[in-house]
């Protein structure tokens, strides 16, 4: 008896979103990124199309983290105090498709950097690399409402991805996105119902659904990864069934989540039975990223160059029809 592959019939597709603008499009990027457009669950090439491959953004911070894990220190410690140099290294040496700039230093409990200082950081990164940018605030609503409009202004026309709009704080950033021609990252705290609500709220302000990317919060391996996975998978199923309010591409913050885990950071002297620390964090990040690829993530935000290289090979292999 021959085996017949069971094939699901879907009625709709995930949205296609392009980030970045070249000179011809009014920006200064030398490359742009297009994600989404999938007409089936990820990598089921026998069932539907996956016209755009998932992409890897590498994350840079505006201020160096106080405590790097040793492998991160070794990989980017030399540039981690300089966002522009860090970004350049990510693109030129590590082949990042995008750069994700996170303005952690703006947080009042950190360095309370001003909107102008943050905007200068963003501008320096923009000038240092040709790939598209993702720009995040510090996560504190009031401060982000000062910082993000300024960062939006200085990158006007560059078609960046700006984050994040949340259920209780979405108006300022949505307005900035609309005014300066950016894409919007809509965030929900591991909750598909709130994700849908945020998408409704921002679209009611007049932002087209085709300009939204979803960030549903990410849990690293061992720290809630399965929650995030099931929410993303359910979101994708809703998109394929025609729910236009959940049809946007999805992003996962893999690097920062994974390198928080004690399993990624703890030295061999403390936990010799866990094996060499030089491998653990990289494996933790690559494993988490690979899982999210299968959940339907379109944009992975990652930290360690070796994890990036492993995941890029995984994407190559999953995207080839013979895989």
């Amino acid at each position: 008896m021959s085996f017949e592959m069971p094939v699901e019939k879907w009625t709709a597709a995930a949205n296609t979103v392009t980030i970045g603008a070249t000179a011809a499009e009014g920006g200064t990027r030398t490359s742009v990124v297009t994600v989404g457009g999938d007409t089936s669950l990820p990598f089921l090439h026998f069932e539907g199309a996956m016209p755009n491959r998932p992409v890897i953004a590498m994350e840079v911070l505006d201020v160096a983290p106080a405590e790097w894990a040793t492998p991160m220190e070794e990989a980017v410690g030399d540039v981690s105090g300089d966002a522009a140099a860090w970004a350049r290294k990510c693109v030129e040496e590590f082949g990042a498709d995008m750069i994700s700039v996170r303005l952690v230093g703006a947080h009042p409990d950190e360095q309370d950097r001003s909107a102008e200082e943050c905007a200068q950081t963003v501008k320096s990164v923009l000038e240092a690399v040709g790939v598209p940018l993702i720009i995040w605030g510090c996560g504190q609503a009031e401060k982000d409402n000062e910082v993000m409009p300024r960062c939006s202004e200085v990158t006007a026309g560059e078609n960046c991805l700006l984050g994040t709009a949340k259920e209780d704080n979405y108006k300022t950033i949505t307005a900035a996105c609309m005014a300066d021609g950016h894409k919007l990252l809509a965030e929900a705290p591991l909750d598909i119902n709130i994700q849908k609500q945020v998408n409704i709220l921002v679209s009611e302000m007049g932002l087209e659904l085709s300009r939204i990317v979803m960030y549903q919060a990410t849990g690293g391996l061992g720290y809630g990864m399965e929650y995030a996975y099931s929410i993303m998978e359910r979101t994708r199923l809703a998109a394929l069934s025609g729910d236009r309010m959940l049809s946007m591409p999805m992003l996962a913050l893999v690097g920062s989540e994974c390198w928080k885990a004690k399993e990624a950071r703890t030295g061999e002297d403390t936990a010799p039975e866990w094996g060499p620390v030089s491998e653990r964090g990289v494996a933790w990040e690559a494993t988490t990223a690979t899982c999210f690829l299968h959940a339907g993530t379109h944009i992975l935000v990652m930290w360690h160059p070796r994890a990036v290289s492993i995941v890029r090979k995984t994407i190559d292999s999953l995207m080839s029809q013979e895989a």
Binding site: I192, N193, I194, K196, Q197, I200, L201, S203, E204, R234, A238, G242, D243, R244, M245, L246
Partner: peptide
């Protein structure tokens, strides 16, 4: 048959 959101009526109509 649809994912809940507080504004589920609006979501249906917009879709």
């Amino acid at each position: 048959r649809a994912v809940y959101a507080d504004d589920f009526l609006k979501a249906y109509r917009a879709s």
